[in-house]
Amino acid sequence: MKLAPPAIWILLFVSLNGCAKDRSLAPPPDSEQITVTVKVPKELEAETMQVMYRSATCKRVTHGASGQRIEVEGHHSIDVQLQRQGLSDLYQASLAKDGGGACKWHLANVIFGVTYADPTRFGENVTSGAGGGVVVIFDHNNSPRGGADIKVDGDLIIKKDYYPWVKENFLNGYRKRVSLAGQGSIYLNYQALQARKVYFEPVLHSGFLVSSEGTKVHKIGSFIKFTYPDGSVLADGRSEPDFRKLQSIRLAAESKQ
């Protein structure tokens, strides 16, 4: 018996299983838009925004702890560069809420933020670190950075204080990075189901630098040493600067001006 070519078997398999969908995005012309705007301080730059669409039509298969087959929503991720608005400090991107296509994609979440444009201004071989990130979730799924810490109704306006944080690490190789110390973790996580406009304004207090020196040996009682803008030095077991202390130092200094 003559066997069919491999390509024929593939076509038969696809047609029998009904999974020959075009998984590309194809937003309809009348799709509602969600606008993301970042006001970028002059020392910083907007990072590339990670955008995720999800689909209940084009599912993907994963497996549980005991090997059972689990179907979950499919996802499609793209990178989007925020565009500067004229000569202003505003950077913006518009995203289709309805991703369209055969998979009927919908906008699920975005991850964006700011970082230092020139980290070497803090010293040779200094690289950009973490901080200054935002996650906005538009559906009921977690993002790649986890779930939401804050849920909001309507549009989302975020204005947060940040401080330059130069940190040296010695264990597992020497590294020196400049990060943004703010309130909370590296990313601020929001769920905004009804938002059509997202605005993020990071306020950088560049004159109030905090530095840290990591431990050089694994030893109980050996902590990261933080030097704050007022000259105080603390090694109290923290892994990140004390944000309230930074705010207090700045506000006290500004009240004397």
Rank of each mutant, 00 (worst) to 15 (best):
Q33L: 15
K225T: 15
P27Y: 03
M52W: 08
V36H: 00
P144F: 11
L171F: 11
A181F: 05
E43M: 06
T215H: 07
S185F: 04
Q194S: 14
G64K: 12
G154S: 11
L204H: 10
R69Q: 10
F170N: 13
M1A: 13
G182L: 01
V38S: 01
F208A: 09
L246I: 07
V110Q: 01
A46S: 12
A195T: 05
K2E: 10
N172S: 13
E240Q: 13
S77M: 15
I158W: 00
R84T: 09
V61W: 06
S232W: 02
L90C: 08
V136E: 02
V166Q: 07
V126N: 07
G67T: 10
A56L: 05
G123I: 12
Y199H: 14
F226D: 03
V134N: 02
K97Q: 14
F223V: 09
E240C: 03
I10L: 15
G101F: 05
R84Y: 09
D98G: 08
P6R: 12
L44D: 05
S88G: 06
S179T: 08
E240P: 01
I8R: 13
Y174C: 03
L246D: 07
L209R: 11
Q247K: 14
P29G: 03
G237D: 10
W9I: 08
S239V: 11
R175W: 06
I78F: 04
F200Q: 00
F208W: 13
D236K: 14
D155Y: 11
K219W: 03
L171G: 07
V61D: 03
I78Y: 04
Q92E: 15
D236N: 14
S185I: 00
V38G: 01
Q92R: 15
L188H: 13
N17R: 09
G74L: 07
D118Q: 11
P41N: 02
G132E: 00
V72W: 02
S77Q: 15
R121P: 04
S55H: 02
M49N: 06
Q247S: 13
A102L: 05
L107N: 06
Y199P: 06
F243R: 01
F138A: 03
D155R: 12
F243M: 00
P144M: 10
V136D: 01
G214I: 07
S143L: 02
V152T: 14
G132N: 03
S94Y: 03
S212T: 07
S211F: 01
Q33W: 10
A181R: 03
Y53W: 10
W105T: 07
N142E: 13
M49T: 12
A192V: 11
Q191F: 01
L25N: 09
G100R: 07
F208Q: 09
V51A: 01
W9C: 06
P41Y: 02
V203E: 14
L12W: 11
E73I: 00
V233W: 02
S31I: 01
S185M: 06
L234D: 13
Y199A: 12
Y116W: 09
P28Q: 09
S31Y: 02
A20F: 12
H205M: 08
Y199E: 15
V152D: 04
G154R: 11
